[in-house]
Nucleic acid binder design. Structure first.
Lengths: 242, 242
DNA sequence: AAGTGGTCTAGACCACCGT
DNA sequence: CGGTGGTCTAGACCACTTT
């Protein structure tokens, strides 16, 4: 029948946890269809209504997509999705445009204490470190530094000096099985350092928007740190409060 | 039975709209209890499950609060709620502290074209204009300019020069029947103007985080514009992406 | 004890999609 | 057409709060 019961959480929450685990472990691959609701209900020994409520939770967290008449699918990190949910920068008129990337540096190093801490690693752990510039409509307005734990991204490397249009989160999922589920950002205004100012074509000391992000995977473990510097002469960071 | 049917939306959505309308129009006052689910179902001629789904939608949008064993209540803008949902500034250690306010200017003026546009008003419409400083833990780190349409806030005024601890959104709801349901923010980094720098105890040209907000009421009409300038020496703006 | 929202079930029927 | 998710119903029972 079901092995769920000796757990104090509601049945639908336990069901959601089981399904979520299957997605996280790759039992159902990104993009693939999961069984119909009645099948899941029978397999897990709960009523269809309970499965429905569980799927509703996964859908709200964007782990699955349900399409009437077609089925329910494990969410895949498409460029559109990454762009829409995880890229909060628009032009002044509110237009969202896909940026391109130009990798400046990509290296694997031993983490300093300061680098290790935000990712929950021990000092000295292997870390990939990336620096890149991003262009929107041809203008370099973003500088980005990214840190990735080697343990989660074995052999990670990006081609230095080449133009990239793919979103990194699509690549993380496709090449390393890491799905970014959510992120926390802390914003500040800073004065541009000389080298960063040069890369962005600004005066030293020009105001820049600094966006410090920690991104988490499906199990809510921190898997990426990135610090973005944005020239807000022609762009804005947007947020919705509700 | 029910007057809902000749509408293509699902029953639960129509039910949600009816209940939402009652809240927006003040038929049920903020803080008051609304009838039990079975009563609503009987009154509206739908099943209890449909009412439940409608209430679920209102709860997600934080228009109501449901408490098991007690009842369902129209959400009131408490200071805690305003602080938690609409105040995204924390200290560097992540601590959230309630700011106090010091009103510098409060006047009623005719809107310029630039002031009228974001609020969807005609140029020349009456507008309340407020400028205030906000202190966190005794330190002045925030400057704020606020614009309110006179039509929605008749007779609005704040005491200049006195310390305020109440959140404005609590006051909007209590004194003017305006409930803020959501807000959009656009962020940029700017260089401090001479007078603003003076008020914050900074050098002219110091980087400041500019937060431009439009706040919307229950019917999704823009009712407040505010521009916040934050000194990010000791504070951060936080955002969650999911 | 009475009254409230929360959970869980079972089933009918609708709307949409692909073949 | 068969299969999928979406809607709607009706009712039993549980957990919590107040009297």
């Amino acid at each position: 029948m079901n092995a769920l019961r000796p757990d104090s959480r509601p049945l639908y929450a336990q069901t959601e946890a089981i399904l979520m685990r299957r997605i996280a472990e790759g039992f159902w691959a990104p993009g693939s269809m999961i069984p119909p609701e009645p099948d899941l209900a029978a397999e897990l020994g709960v009523s269809p209504g309970t499965v429905r409520k569980a799927l509703g939770g996964l859908e709200r967290r964007r782990l699955i997509e349900r399409r009437q008449g077609r089925g329910t699918f494990v969410a895949a990190h498409t460029s559109e999705r990454a762009l829409f949910h995880f890229f909060r920068i628009t032009a002044l008129d509110g237009q969202r445009r896909a940026p391109t990337s130009h990798v400046l540096e990509c290296a694997t190093v031993a983490a300093s204490a300061e680098e290790a801490q935000p990712l929950g690693l021990a000092a000295g752990a292997a870390l990939h470190r990336v620096k890149r510039a991003r262009l929107i409509a041809g203008a370099a307005c973003i500088l980005e530094r990214i840190w990735l734990p080697e343990a989660r991204f074995p052999g990670f490397a990006l081609p230095v000096g080449r133009e990239m249009t793919d979103e990194l989160y699509v690549l993380y999922q496709r090449d390393h099985g890491v799905t970014i589920a959510r992120a926390e950002e802390r914003l500040a205004a800073i004065a541009a350092a000389p080298d960063d100012a040069g890369l962005l074509g600004l005066e030293e000391g020009a105001p820049l928007l600094e966006i410090a992000r920690i991104a988490f995977d499906l199990q809510d473990r921190p898997v990426e740190r990135r610090v973005t510097l944005l020239d807000t002469a022609a762009h804005r960071y947007i947020a919705n409060l509700d």
